[in-house]
Structure formats: structure tokens, C-alpha cells
Amino acid sequence: MKTKNIMIVGVGGQGSLLASKLLGKLLLTKGYDVKVSEVHGMSQRGGSVVTYVRFGDKVYSPIIDKGEADYIVSFELLEAARYTEYLKPGGKIVTNTQQINPMPVITGAAEYPADLAKKMADAGIDVDAFDALKLAEEAGSSKAVNIVLMGHLSKNFDFTLEEWMEAIESSVPAKFLELNKKAFALGRDA
């Protein structure tokens, strides 16, 4: 199988590492070669963060380059818009509609562009935008946005619900398991 590429983008601190951990575990149990590339250190402090998940028969490069992403999963709307060039033809963006102002917007040096989801669609991008934060809060915690997004992404794959649930069970602490299962279900149904 040709290597598939999933980019997870968001704002440092939003929990993208857990999402990539979950995907990595699932894909490994399905017998794929897997590489997951993370960002640590300074960029984590509220900066734009990118995680690359790649899987297939044999994966070489740990990163995803422009024009290569089958899916971009975005925790925040501006971050989805930032990485559109990374989509391959026919690729898809799954994004939370939450907006978090970056510092240049907070200080007034720049503006947060309006109607980004619509503009992406107008540019011919297959974009699936939904309010993951609301669903996470409904599940019990705004921190579960990552699992809501995974639930929504899961609709694009043939893996069974049981397989996803096993990956969640091995990725999150037991005391948050029910919350995350609920978050996943809400994302999958949205």
C-alpha cells in the first residue's frame, strides 16, 4: 500500500500528541509500518504545532511535505488555513471551528481572517468543519477536543469502532476513559 499521510495541526497545549499516539497505536496493531513525528520544546508554548502520522507497507521519511497530506486534522481554524498547501490533490481537511487568537492578532499587529472555512471550500478544498469544542464540553471536558476530532476523522477509515476503542483504552488514563469514549462517539456521530 502506498504511504498514507495524516497531519495533525493546532496550537501548542491543545493535546495533539495524544491524538497522534492513539493513531500510532491503532495503525501499528493493523500491521502497518508507522512513523509519527512530533514537536517538542519551544514551539509547544502556544505556538503553531504540527504532528505527522504516516503509515503504509514501508515508511521512510518521518515528515509530510507540501502536497502530500491525505488528511489534515486541525484543532483550530487558522491552523487549518495555514497548512492547506500540504494537502495532496483529493485530500481532505477535518477541522474544529474554534478560533484561538495568535499574539500578532492579540496585539493588533494582524487580523484573524474572516470566514476561513468558507474560503477554504471556495478554493476547492474538501473541508469538513465542525464545532469540536462544543462536543468536547458536552462529553465533559474542553480538553477532549483531540478525541472528538479523532472520532470525526474515524468516519473516513474502514477500521472498526472496536479497534478505535482499543487504541483509546491503551492511550488514555483509566479515569478519563469513559469521558474519552463519549467524546469519540460524539465526534464520530457529528
Binding site: A81, T84, E85, K119
Partner: peptide, 12 residues
């Protein structure tokens, strides 16, 4: 490459 939006995307 994928499509690029016309808007300037503020740095983060």
C-alpha cells in the same frame, strides 16, 4: 502543492 488561500495567515 495544495491550494493556498489569498488571505495572509497571521504567524503564531
Amino acid at each position: 502543492c495544495g491550494a493556498k488561500l489569498e488571505d495572509t495567515i497571521p504567524a503564531r
